[in-house]
Amino acid sequence: MYSASDLRKGLKITIDNEPYVVTAFEFSKPGKGQALYRTKLKNMITGLTIDRTYREGDTFEPASLEERPMQYLYKEGEHYYFMDSETYEQIIINEETLGEGKNFLVENLNVKVLMFQDKAIGVDLPNFVNLRVIKTEMWVKGDTSKADYKPATVETGYELRIPPFVQEGELITIDTRTGEYSTRVKE
């Protein structure tokens, strides 16, 4: 349990059952008044920032967050199944929580899942993943400049632009941070 006087930048606390991180903090005490702790708090699930002012006697539960190594198994509708690499326990993460990450999940991919009170709130992907191109146009010889990149769809259904020389059925590396094509993988 934290009290208001423990508040400082970077502290992670639980409010209304959701984890928040303190991003700005100011101690205030208006003339002859009580000590007030003004904070900006970022919701670690939604990313939204709120302003809250606390008083001396206020207390908070710490937000205990934990990163667990897991392997992606398969998806069923909007549910994505993962297996804890240490306990072999299976968990389900929904599409909304995955966000952009869902574009890069291939079976057996090793990821880190951010857990808050036994609930998955986010997935950390490797910076690069290999995905197979399942649909793209034929290569017309001579087009090599970046401007001539062509649309393509990979096995997860994700659409991006790739160089013209990459053919359907080939494996490419995608940077998960930008969602862009990185290289072609020689098999």
Partner: peptide, 10 residues
């Protein structure tokens, strides 16, 4: 009073 003072007035 204190909260309003600190947030909106001061």
């Amino acid at each position: 009073f204190d909260e309003v003072m600190v947030r909106d007035i001061e």
